[in-house]
Amino acid sequence: MLEIRNLHASVEGHEILKGVNLTVTAGELHSIMGPNGSGKSTLAQVLAGRDTYEVTQGEVLYEGRNLLEMDPDERARAGVFMAFQYPVEIPGVNTAYFLRAALNSIRKHRGLEELDAADFLDWVKDKMKLVDMDERLLNRSINEGFSGGEKKRGEILQMAVLEPKLAIMDETDSGLDIDALKIVAKGVNTLRSADRAIIVITHYQRILDYIVPDFVHVLVDGRIVRSGGKELALELEEKGYAGMEQKNAATEPVAS
């Protein structure tokens, strides 16, 4: 589904991704772990189409198409979804309206009938139960006045509504208390399916107690330095990122 080959990306002339290789197949859940400044969020943003990052080398294929040539909205309609690390507050834009507009743009692209307000409401109410969200949030402006936990759950709600093929969670677990973390994890687990791939980008091992990845990758200084199964997360927890770097100092990074 997704193939990242030797991806280099810079912001303001400063190289952050220095050759990322990663292959993700439908049905898989990958976790990318890394310390601050390793390039985790840059990778997520580049995949979602943020234009503040310049891709200087490499390529990204999504379902065989050149992802990097697609506009952010084109990617979304094609089934790519990124849960934001910092969801944006948009005063004056009603959440229900926004979600329906987003869903309908994607449904239209998929050749499905667009939902009217009433049908949409039924659709979304169901999904809200999944993330334990109050329906009243639908009538508020997007993320405005939401607590940190509500914003992150809101991202999972959007993912549930939009039903992407490839979902990238950018530190969705950061800053959550244990109850919110469990809700987010439950949402992600429910959304795992054979035709969907999920990439969970995280700083902390904690979320992997609730979401069991098929693969774990360690990103350090713009490169994936280790890849393995779920046990790699535990090793990381024990040794820390510094241990990973030392161990790999002499070897070539392993791509999955």
Binding site: D71, P72, D73, F81, V88, A101, S105, Q158, L162
Partner: peptide, 25 residues
Amino acid sequence: DENAMFYLRSRGLSEPAARGLLVYA
């Protein structure tokens, strides 16, 4: 707000639709 634009577009809204929505708001 370019952040808001990107957020809306990353959910499938076209560039003009996202812009229109923000001006409307």
